[in-house]
């Protein structure tokens, strides 16, 4: 089991938004990957984007350009 680390987590309102964000990130070579939604963000299930905390500025820009409003976006220990 890996040790917990701080990551930037972006949660989405729908799987469609998560897929759209993943596609946009891949197109632009942005780092990160989809993970199961951590309980630190929200209980339940769904997808979240996990990236290094220093990617926040670039990923925020990608969210805006893609027209995606995240359910939540913050750095947390996961």
């Amino acid at each position: 089991m890996r040790k917990k680390e701080y990551f930037l987590i972006i949660a989405f309102h729908s799987t469609h938004d998560a897929m759209a964000f993943e596609e946009t990130c891949h197109d632009r070579g942005a780092e990160g990957r989809l993970i199961p939604l951590p309980k630190e963000i929200s209980a339940g299930c769904g997808l979240a984007w996990c990236a290094q905390p220093d990617a926040e500025e670039s990923l925020t820009g990608i969210l805006a350009q893609a027209g995606i409003i995240p359910q939540e976006k913050r750095v947390c220990l996961v």
Binding site: S14, G44, G46
Partner: peptide, 16 residues
């Protein structure tokens, strides 16, 4: 839906 599991109602967002 695979999302928002603790919501008592169907999520509002399309297409979910």
């Amino acid at each position: 839906t695979g999302v928002q599991s603790f919501l008592r109602t169907q999520p509002e967002e399309y297409p979910t």
